[in-house]
Design a protein around this nucleic acid. Structure first.
Length: 212
DNA sequence: GCGTAATCTAATCAACA
DNA sequence: TGTTGATTAGATTACGC
């Protein structure tokens, strides 16, 4: 998965955050923390952020990259059988409760975010920071939120697609973790209404695949 | 129970030594 | 050119209403 053709992305992704370069001391602390716990909870990341004087979101990215590149405890792709004795590595290491408190957005904040998403689904770092300041949330929340703003609308679109798909059972039988682009190929009449990116597909694909 | 924010992996882009 | 921070897409988890 990942990204579309590079040329497409460079067109939409303007204004990347400048590359953070951690000092040796910062890296030493991060590596030590990683060796103790590759899945730190929110409070641990906050503590680290204070300790090395960096943003918590940068800590998160560092841990993500570190886990990916040092072959550490890949999360199982399939959900583990709850009857089995072993928990996933994440469950073992990180207390699931140690999450950031859910951010609840006011209607005006939501409207501002939605408008921003409509204007530009791929805002650069400058735009995100401006937006974050405007609505009074951290930039990292804006970055995470923006891809989700279209969800409600896309959910409805996906339901419409499912209805159409269910009328085409020969297609539905083959759908399992297909992308929206695949759906577009099969259901070309929906092409104008289907968003091609940022669609969470887990439960929907299961429904479609089972033809329910 | 549902909707969705938070967090995860995987793939990839891209800056920098 | 290799390393590694940043971004994107999609899947999963868990919390607030």
């Amino acid at each position: 998965m990942g990204q579309d053709s590079p040329s497409d992305k460079t067109m939409v992704t303007k204004g990347r955050r400048s590359r953070t370069s951690f000092t040796e001391e910062q890296l030493e602390i991060l590596v030590q923390a990683f060796s103790q716990n590759p899945y730190p909870g929110y409070t641990a990341k906050q503590r680290l952020a204070v300790e090395i004087n960096a943003e918590e979101s940068r800590i998160q990215i560092w841990f993500q990259n570190r886990r990916a590149r040092h072959g550490f405890l890949k999360r199982p792709k399939k959900k583990l059988d709850p009857s089995k004795d072993h928990a996933s590595p994440k469950e073992k290491i990180q207390d699931g409760r140690d999450r950031r408190c859910r951010t609840s957005y006011t209607s005006s904040q939501l409207q501002t975010l939605k408008n921003a998403f409509t204007e530009n689904p791929y805002p650069g770092i400058d735009s995100r920071e401006q937006l974050a300041e405007k609505i009074g949330v951290p930039e990292s929340r804006v970055q995470l939120f923006l891809p989700e703003t279209g969800m409600a609308q896309k959910d409805q679109e996906m339901k419409n697609i499912q209805e159409k798909t269910n009328q085409n059972t020969h297609i539905a039988g083959n759908f399992e973790y297909k992308s929206v682009l695949d759906l577009k190929l099969y259901l070309s009449e929906t092409e104008d209404t289907v968003a091609t990116q940022h669609v969470t597909f887990s439960k929907r694909s299961a429904v479609v695949a089972s033809g329910v």
